[in-house]
């Protein structure tokens, strides 16, 4: 039963992906390629698509693989399966957090975690910038990417513009200027 196989495979992927983002790609590849649902080359294409489409890469690949193997029911089965562990785990963690968040030890813990989040977000900017600049073709494209990045930083970080409008503007600039 393909729908159930998709569901159980993506439930497992959802459950064992901690830290978000690209950490899970190896696991997805292992599950999907070993079952013969996709070739390694097709998987690379899916990652490429996931990078340029909105939404978490886990959902993107679940929908894509589910659709390829089981049509629209397959896409829905895989996509819901990959988020179900999140729903369950967040409900448990959230209940514990609401209960204990006023305890001194939990407050100290989060006073330590908040600066960590700031550092991790700064690191994410570097980790996203590196491959983006590396794969931009030619010095002109790299410079242009940096200029757009700086403009977006100024618009959202300093001038408090709506990020949605900034993304739409960057897409327009890309269409007009990139070669």
């Amino acid at each position: 039963m393909i729908l159930w196989q998709l569901f159980s495979a993506f439930f497992k992927i959802g459950l064992f992906t901690i830290g978000g983002g690209y950490a899970m790609l190896a696991l997805i590849q292992q599950e999907i390629v070993s079952r013969g649902w996709m070739t390694p080359q097709e998987f690379v294409d899916v990652v490429g698509i996931a990078e340029v489409t909105p939404g978490p890469i886990a959902i993107n690949s679940a929908t894509f693989v589910g659709f390829r193997t089981g049509g629209i029911p397959g896409a829905l089965s895989a996509s819901l399966a990959v988020v179900l562990p999140s729903l369950i785990c967040v409900m448990i963690v959230s209940r514990m957090w609401e209960k204990y968040k006023s305890a001194h030890v939990v407050q100290s813990m989060f006073a330590g975690i908040r600066p960590v989040v700031a550092g991790l977000v700064a690191a994410a900017a570097v980790l996203i910038a590196t491959p983006t600049l590396k794969y931009a073709e030619g010095i002109a494209s790299q410079l242009l990417t940096l200029v757009i990045a700086a403009a977006a930083f100024y618009a959202v970080g300093v001038k408090k513009f709506d990020p949605i409008k900034v993304i739409a503007g960057a897409a327009l600039v890309g269409i007009l200027i990139f070669r």
Binding site: A125, A129, A149, I167, A170, I175, F178
Partner: peptide
Amino acid sequence: SGIKGAVIGLV
């Protein structure tokens, strides 16, 4: 390509 640049700035 444009969006990728903006994402760096957003993060």
